[in-house]
Design a protein around this nucleic acid. Structure first.
Lengths: 131, 131
DNA sequence: CCTTGACCCTCCAGTGGCTGGAAGCCCCAT
DNA sequence: ATGGGGCTTCCAGCCACTGGAGGGTCAAGG
């Protein structure tokens, strides 16, 4: 399978697939002309990676998850630990963003948004400690 | 004022302040010895930038907000437009993260997390379309 | 046989917003 | 004069790609 076909099946851009080879996540064979020749198993790995990335796992997490996926003797606890840690980080990020959103939406609500210069948004940024 | 003092007042690391000078957000004077000499107004700008960054505005947004802040004839509508756009992006990011969180928390909940290899997390990543 | 166009290759540079570290000057106290 | 802190510059690295240049390969149509 050429890279284009793999790209279509996995939804990953060719550039990304090449990058994943670069960093050692997949190791496709090569045809005589130098083209990458992906086996089925490689494509499944890439699909796996695509889904893990969609869930926000870092590349390093993906690398570990992939290794566990391939290890038939893995302990599900190891997988769960990675996912749990990642979940905690996502939750932290969400709550940080929610704080931003709350502050911002208040400011946007209170700003007239007309052609006058008076603006609570700038006033807050200029003086208060925006939390 | 030297960079260290400004750093303490604004909470921005010296490195960040130098970087902000690099990209033209502030233009401190220089002492005879080459040290940056910040005026009050510069420090206020940096404090403004710190707060805007805390609210998640991009550097480019910050640049524009700063210009509006300094423009006494600005229209608050311009400020509001930037903030509103940014708010929308934050909300999009939150909802994306919430989707991740929902999927992940289900998976984590359903995973035994013991020493057996059976694991719904890997199963999902390996086969389904993780949404 | 030649051309066209779609595919593929590698390599380099840039993104955003810093951050770390090296190498070196400046200033003050002991 | 020595030590320690602060300041300077410059270069490299982070993450996960992405864009683009410059070029090889392949199949179809004329």
């Amino acid at each position: 399978m050429n890279i284009g076909e793999v790209s279509q099946h996995t939804g990953l851009p060719p550039k990304t697939i090449r990058y994943y080879e670069d960093i050692g996540l997949v190791k496709p064979l090569r045809d005589a002309n130098g083209y990458r020749a992906f086996r089925e198993s490689e494509m499944h790995k890439l699909a796996f990676l695509g889904r893990a990335r969609t869930l926000g796992f870092s590349i390093e997490d993906c690398r570990n998850l992939l290794a566990l996926w391939e290890d038939k003797n893995r302990a599900s606890a190891d997988v769960r630990a990675i996912a749990k840690e990642h979940l905690a980080q996502i939750e932290a990020k969400i709550s940080g963003l929610q704080d931003m959103r709350d502050t911002l939406s208040t400011l946007v609500r209170d700003c007239a948004g007309d052609d006058r210069p008076d603006c609570p948004i700038l006033k807050t940024l200029g003086t208060a400690t925006a939390s």
